[in-house]
Design a protein around this nucleic acid. Structure first.
Lengths: 154, 154
DNA sequence: GGAAGTTACCCACAACTACCCACAATCTTA
DNA sequence: TAAGATTGTGGGTAGTTGTGGGTAACTTCC
């Protein structure tokens, strides 16, 4: 029994195998609701990581995209960029998903893959890349950060 | 069993053969619902690409066109331009569709063809042309783009 | 009507992918 | 603590996918 459907938290360190497969944390598999049919949609995320959506969440995005007319240039561009690198995968009997060479290169993955729950989606990072991004984020707007914290953490 | 009917996402790099045929990604063939009868309607798209509609989607466009009175000059012109370059094709046993010389020229295709899912239709690009368009789009209205992103991606 | 060109259908094959089984390490439970 | 179940990782194999080209039917033009 799962408490929260389609909710992903926590960090997991796995390895990328020679076939480009990464494990999906068992906890995530359990919290994935049945109407996802063991399927995730994988795509490029921001800051060179990979985003992994549960199918139901992706479908919401998709239905929003469906309503954008292709006559507007900005819409066309947005749809194309959003969808371009995305594709659905079912995890195999061992609970792994296969990444494409293109995504592996984008995220700079080599041997290790860090999987981080982002509540409604999952992020896959190369550990070194994430470290770098975190260092850059030291220069982030501290006040804005604290404002957020006060609102949300209580 | 298909998860998502008539939904096309992802990017695929194929080659145009000497007979003007391009492969339709296997994933797209699977997600094409049966009432399309393996048929796509191919036509000119915006920005020198080729648009490929599943038959059912094209029929919606057609029925909208049907309701436009030919008395208005603007309607006549619009109908003509929309329908002019469109024609239906079934994909062959190997899953390929044949493009006309006219469309190949319009899209500037030579050897490589980039196929990009646009959710409710498919676009075929010459890789170099798309690169150029993408560069031009760097000058797009960033704020409007980000607004879209915040609304849709979450 | 017949030649030349075009199109539709078929077969072939290399590369790749999805599916399966195996096993060691870890966690659970009695 | 011991037995059993679960989890993470590796690799083999059969089926699928992408690509090329051959042949017969059909169209077009003289």
């Amino acid at each position: 029994m799962t408490l929260t459907n389609n909710t992903f938290i926590g960090e997991y360190a796995y390895s990328l195998d020679s076939k480009g497969r990464v494990n999906v944390p068992a906890k995530y598999r359990q919290s994935l609701s049945d109407d996802n049919d063991s399927t995730f949609v994988i795509t490029r995320g921001m800051d060179s990581c990979i985003w992994v959506y549960p199918l139901t969440h992706w479908k919401e995005i998709e239905s929003n995209l469906r309503n954008l007319s292709s006559i507007s240039r900005i819409n066309r561009t947005f749809v194309r960029n959003t969808v371009r690198y995305a594709f659905p995968t079912q995890y195999d009997k061992q609970g792994r998903i296969t990444l494409t060479p293109s995504l592996i290169e984008y995220a700079g993955l080599t041997k290790d893959a860090l999987i981080i729950g982002m509540v409604n989606k999952i992020a896959i990072w190369d550990p070194a890349t994430l470290k770098l991004i975190d260092q850059q984020n030291m220069e982030i707007d501290i006040e804005a950060y604290d404002d957020l914290a006060e609102k949300i953490i209580l």
